[in-house]
Structures are given as structure tokens and as C-alpha cells.
Design a protein around this nucleic acid. Structure first.
Lengths: 213, 213
DNA sequence: GTCTATAAGGGGATAGAC
DNA sequence: GTCTATCCCCTTATAGAC
């Protein structure tokens, strides 16, 4: 499965219409628009952020944003899909070998680090699902499901290998992911414990939850 | 600590100005406004819902809403504080006696049931924190902290009694609450498993996470 | 690629009649 | 307690100059 997506959802930039011209800034302005939108939406919410605010943050007038997105809805969707794409691409490097316990620990560490490195994208991806059109929502749900299934496969592997004690792998998968993602709501870099300690504690909680023998 | 709050945050209804008059509907319209606002905000988000939409849902004109709230921000805050008040009031009936394991299981069952019975209030209370003024946010954080501390007390009790194996009671508290609350994002009444089974599974996950001996 | 200007409409909140 | 009417500002998105 190719998890990568086109730049626009409904408005593909075919041909060379946006090719670089002397004095153009499109190839740097585009990412700046996305970054500003992500930051503002994470802080204030999609509906509360106006195109004018995003434009001001980038140093543009509002009308110029429509060179970079066909509309506000697509801007949100592209941010969220970009996050899920990045998540699944990053998982492509995950070991498909090793014991269930090794693969479980790798998943836990991966999930924690990936999410803590992108607090704004995580926030937006969890909070703004209700602001998507039904089609866009379904697309993201499918991507999220692909990710969840990777953990469930590990749990089932551990169960058949006799090293995990899990009553329901689907529920345990959702419960573990919710537990790990919750870390993003309270973690602070200058908090009481270093990240390595927190990772160890969460790994231990997960070991207990799946009944590591 | 008295966890109950006044009807308004900043705009108390002192005296008898709103006493019942012939033909008045205030004592029934008020709750209807709150219910409509909660429902709409849960579905679309605070910023996306207009006072006109809320009024239409109740069968009023927009101006009439201002008999029931001084402004939109206070309406949101009152919904969220009402939820936390109800949570803490409901916990007043919780057993302060019993073994750590009994009290832990009672907390897990309570949390699951209370949250599943109020999906809209749970959603709003977790998603709209960023739309509160700093003062209102601080108030809610304090109430949430009181609730979390009840679980942490149980975990510490189990540790000193030698029946739980918890490395860090604060982190375990937050992790367990995140895990349990996550249930509200996927639970459906007509789902694969009856609630009693789901409760048993989550209770087992929590037992593992706290290292029940 | 970015600007200015504008269309067409919705927003929160208030005033004062009834 | 509810209505109508209104103030004033903000919204998304487009048109067309440069």
C-alpha cells in the first residue's frame, strides 16, 4: 500500500503551471503556509482560525493563500493526511523480525517519540476530525486503522507465541494507544523526569497490560 | 472542598429578578439552552457553533439566549464546570474503605460508566479547554486534578500495602485515566461486546498495568 | 505570486417594544 | 421572557491589476 498522498486532495497541480519563475517564492511559501496553519489550528482550533490570521502569520494577504490550497477544508485535510502519511512512512523502517517483546517495545518507543516530536500535528489530528467532510474523515480513519493494526499484529504474535496474556487484542490495542498518546497532553521537556525514564515507565505499564510472561 | 459552583461564573442572579411569572418558561428554557449548546458544541466545536444555531435548536431568537448566559464564553465554561462538578459529586459516594484492589476496581467501573453515560460532555470537556479564558482554564484544571488525585491515592495505598507494583504513581494515574477515557472514542452500544465484558477487560488491563500481586 | 478590492453573508452582543 | 431590529465587525472566497 502506498501511503503517500498527492499535494492537493481535489485540486491537483498537473503540468507546469506552478513552475518556478524569477522572483517566485512558492516553493518556500507553501510549507510556511502549512506550518503556520498547523500551529494556529493546534492552539485555537480550526473553526476559530481565519485565513486572514494564517496569511498574517506568513506575511501574506489572505487572497494569496489560495495559491497554496483550494479552500480551508482542504488545508486542514492536507495537514492531517500529511501527519498520518509521515507516521506510516516512519513505520516502514520498523523491524518485522524479533521476538514479540522486542517488537512491542520498539512500537512503544516509536509511538512515544514520534508523537512527542509533533505535538501540534497530534493535537490537530485528534481534535479536528469532526471538522472534516465525511469523505476526508473516512480517508483518515483508514490510515489510522492501518497503524493500529500494526500493534494488534504484534499482540497476536505474542499471544500465539505464548508470551503475552491478552484477552482481546483489538481492545488492548486501542487501550494501549490511548494510554501512550495521552502522554502528549502532559509531557514537558523540563518536567520532573527525563524522557528515557518516562519511556521505561510506559514500557513497563504496557508489559503489565499485555501480561508479559 | 465544596465542588459545587454558582449558576453563572461572573453574572450571578441575585435576588428574585428571575422569579417565576405567569407565562414564563425560564426555569425550563435554561436547561434546554445548556442541553442544546452541549450537543451542538460536541458535534461541531465551540467556535463553529453560533449563538443563532443554539437559539434555533431551542426555538428562540438569538437575543433571548442572553437571559441565560452573559456571553458565549461563560456558556461554554458553565457546561464544562457542570461536567466536572457532576463528576466530583458522583465520586462523593465512593467507598473510602476496602482493600486497594477493591477500591481500584470500583474506580475503574465508575470512570467507565460515568464517561460513557455523558459522551457529549466528555468530548466538550477534553476538546474545548483551549477555548477557555486563562482563569476559566485554571479553574477546570484544578477540578480535574482533584479527580486524578483520587486514583493516585488508591495507587499509593496499594503500593504501601504491598499489593501493587507501581514505579511512579503520578504517571500511572495519568496513563490509566487516558486509557479508560479512550474507551469513549470507540465504544458503541451495539458493538461487538457487551459493556460488562468491556469493563472486565479494562479492569484486567489496569490490574496488569499496576502489577496486581 | 502577490496585491487590492469586493462580493455575499455570518458573527456576538445590545436596545427597546411588548 | 421573548421578540424584532440593529450595530459593527469578521468570514471565505473570487476578480483582476501588476
Amino acid at each position: 500500500m502506498n501511503v503517500c498522498s498527492a499535494k492537493w486532495s481535489q485540486h491537483d497541480n498537473v503540468g507546469g503551471k506552478m513552475a518556478r519563475k524569477t522572483g517566485s517564492h512558492g516553493d518556500i511559501t507553501g510549507p510556511k503556509v502549512q506550518a503556520a496553519a498547523l500551529r494556529l489550528i493546534a492552539r485555537h482550533g480550526f473553526a476559530a482560525v481565519s485565513m486572514r490570521q494564517i496569511a498574517r502569520e506568513v506575511g501574506l494577504q489572505a487572497g494569496a493563500l489560495y495559491r497554496y490550497t483550494p479552500d480551508k477544508q482542504t488545508l486542514l485535510f492536507d495537514l492531517m493526511r500529511g501527519h498520518m502519511d509521515a507516521l506510516l512512512v516512519a513505520r516502514e523502517g520498523a523491524a518485522m523480525a524479533g521476538t514479540p517483546l522486542i517488537r512491542l517495545d520498539e512500537f512503544v518507543r516509536f509511538h512515544i517519540r514520534f508523537h512527542l516530536e509533533r505535538p501540534d500535528a497530534v493535537f490537530v489530528s485528534y481534535m479536528e476530525l469532526r471538522n472534516l467532510t465525511p469523505e476526508n474523515f473516512a480517508t483518515l480513519e483508514a490510515l489510522r486503522r492501518v497503524y493500529e493494526d500494526q500493534l494488534e499484529v504484534i499482540l497476536r504474535f505474542g499471544v500465539v507465541a505464548g508470551v503475552f496474556d491478552v484477552v482481546d487484542t483489538k481492545i488492548s490495542t486501542l487501550a494501549i494507544i490511548a494510554m501512550l498518546t495521552g502522554l502528549t497532553t502532559w509531557y514537558r521537556e523540563d518536567g520532573r523526569l527525563p524522557l528515557a525514564d518516562i519511556e521505561r515507565i510506559y514500557t513497563g505499564l504496557v508489559h503489565g497490560a499485555v501480561g508479559v510472561k
